[in-house]
Amino acid sequence: MIIDEKNYMHKSWWKIASALLLIYTFVCGLLLDVPNLPALEETIRNLYFHVGMWFCMMTLFILSVINSIRYLRSFSLKYDIYARQYATVGIVFGLLGYLTGAIWMSYTWADPNNPSFQSFSAVAREPKLIGTAIALLIYFAYLILRDSITDIDKRARISAVYNIFAFAMLFPTIWIVPRLLPSLHPGGQSGNPALDTRDIDHRMLAVFYPAVVGWTLLGVWITTLKIRINILKEKKMMQ
């Protein structure tokens, strides 16, 4: 049985914080000075948006697996709904990260003398691209697995266990393998991804960290709306 109590989902201070941080990100991210890096130039501003998507995805997947574990500890069905919705919105942010990366890549990594689709063979070797594609497909499989089982308890239990496996696969595919191989992303075989002080300085970090928090809170906000709708639906079915 699903009992909903008043919790963080009904508070408004963090939603206002999310909106303000995003407004700050959009204004300062476009207007403040950025270091002039070779090949990147003004596109380094994409860091606030493209990388923000990945941070948000990662946080939502972490929240998803936490709720799966909470389900397995308590067998309370509401945590199953939480886990599923966090994973869905995580995938949406992952896809947005992928799309924004595709645009950014077309004008930086791709050979400027060729149209971007001709340098695809070079760009497609990028290990982070392949790794993220695998990770997202594993999460797609989570949604398919969960929604194809009709028995409510079986569905919750099997998908919660699968979600833990999916989360375990995130680390080799996103964090470990791309850092062992030569990569076009910062932080391939050497260096630190995105936060290397040789690439970006404190001026950029002053926008980057608020951007990450803002995007993450927005992702959580969207998820809480989906969770609340789904809990309402469950309640209606029980009546």
């Binding site: 939603k15 927005l218 906000w221 969207i222 709306l225 609340r228 709708i229 309402l232």
Partner: peptide, 8 residues
């Protein structure tokens, strides 16, 4: 988002 939140 605010509107959706209030509707829910």
């Amino acid at each position: 988002m605010v509107r959706l939140d209030r509707k829910i």
